[in-house]
Simulated scan of single mutants.
Amino acid sequence: MKSPLFWGIVYLFMAISFVYFAIQQRGRTGEWDLFTIVLMAIAAYDLLVAVRYFTFKPKVEKK
């Protein structure tokens, strides 16, 4: 199994990617449509998971 730091970076990269795609979608349509909101919700979830992995890392290192 990979370290929590690795997975935290992966989820952080995914969150940044989804935010980028949401910004591109909003620029293309000119408004906040359902797809843009779904992309931002996925990005928020990925960011939450990344933060959890980053806070889990010190706990794993203690053991």
Rank of each mutant, 00 (worst) to 15 (best):
Lys57Met: 13
Lys62Met: 10
Pro4Arg: 03
Ile9Trp: 03
Gly27Asp: 04
Ser17Met: 14
Ile9Gly: 02
Trp7Ser: 05
Leu5Thr: 08
Met14His: 03
Trp32Arg: 11
Asp33Pro: 01
Lys62Asp: 08
Phe13Arg: 12
Val49Ile: 14
Pro4Ser: 10
Trp32Pro: 00
Ala50Phe: 05
Ala50Ile: 08
Glu61Val: 06
Gln24Glu: 08
Asp46Phe: 14
Phe18Gln: 03
Glu61Tyr: 06
Lys63Gln: 15
Ile42Gly: 01
Phe6Trp: 09
Gln24Pro: 00
Lys63Cys: 09
Ala15Glu: 02
Leu5Pro: 00
Ser17Cys: 11
Arg26Val: 09
Asp33Tyr: 00
Lys57Trp: 12
Met40Phe: 15
Asp33Ala: 01
Lys63Ser: 14
Lys59Asp: 12
Tyr53His: 13
Gly30Arg: 12
Pro58Asn: 09
Leu48Ser: 15
Val60Met: 14
Phe54Trp: 10
Phe35Gly: 06
Asp33Val: 03
Glu61Cys: 02
Trp32Ala: 10
Trp7Ile: 02
Asp33Met: 02
Phe35Thr: 11
Ala44Met: 12
Ile37Thr: 10
Ser3Asn: 10
Lys63Leu: 14
Phe6Thr: 13
Thr29His: 09
Pro58Tyr: 06
Arg28Ala: 11
Ala50Asn: 03
Ile23Gly: 03
Phe18Cys: 04
Leu39Met: 12
Phe13Lys: 15
Pro58Ile: 04
Leu34Thr: 15
Ile23Thr: 04
Thr55Asp: 06
Phe13Met: 13
Phe56Lys: 15
Val19Cys: 09
Arg26Trp: 05
Ala41Ser: 14
Val51Thr: 10
Phe21His: 08
Leu5Gly: 05
Ile37Glu: 07
Ile23Lys: 06
Val38Gln: 11
Thr29Pro: 04
Ala44Phe: 11
Tyr11Pro: 00
Thr36Ser: 14
Leu39Val: 00
Val10Tyr: 08
Val49Met: 11
Val60His: 11
Arg28Pro: 01
Val38Phe: 09
Val19His: 01
Val19Ser: 03
Leu34Tyr: 12
Arg26Gln: 13
Phe6Ile: 10
Met1Cys: 08
Glu61Lys: 09
Ile42Thr: 05
Ala41Val: 04
Phe21Thr: 02
Ile23Leu: 07
Tyr20Trp: 07
Arg28Ile: 05
Lys2Ile: 03
Leu12Ser: 11
Asp33Phe: 01
Met14Arg: 02
Trp32Leu: 07
Phe21Cys: 06
Leu48Tyr: 15
Leu47Lys: 07
Ala43Glu: 06
Ser17Lys: 10
Lys2Gly: 04
Arg28His: 12
Phe21Ile: 06
Gln24Asp: 04
Arg52Gln: 11
Glu31Ala: 11
Gly8Arg: 01
Ala22Lys: 01
Leu12Phe: 08
Ser3Met: 05
Gly30Cys: 12
Val60Thr: 14
Ile16Val: 11
Thr36Gly: 14
Glu31Tyr: 10
Ile9Asn: 12
Ile42Phe: 13
Ala22Leu: 02
Thr29Glu: 08
Lys62Thr: 10
Phe21Arg: 06
Ile42Leu: 13
Val38Ile: 15
Trp7Glu: 07
Tyr45Leu: 15
Tyr11Phe: 13
Ala22Trp: 00
Ile23Arg: 07
Gln25Pro: 00
Gln24Ala: 07
